[in-house]
Amino acid sequence: MSDDDKKPPIPARGPDRRRGPDRRQNPVDPADLPFPDRRKGDRRQMDRRVTSPEETEELLKIIKPDTDEGAGG
């Protein structure tokens, strides 16, 4: 294959002129929390909740017993 047959590179972006390592590699997207496991492609794994509603409720009950002595809110 000669050089002429080579497809031109995708022209949309020029070289990355910013300093440091090439930032287009390994982007870290905090919106992916928590712990996405993309290997399984499971949508639920993109769920951003760290706690379930039940768990939150359970925790609130513990720190705020029936009286108003517990944590205020």
């Binding site: 929390l33 939150t56 944590a71």
Partner: peptide, 13 residues
């Protein structure tokens, strides 16, 4: 409550 839940979530994560 909000602060306790906040640190709990952080800690669990």
């Amino acid at each position: 409550d909000a602060m306790i839940l906040g640190f709990y979530r952080f800690l669990k994560a």
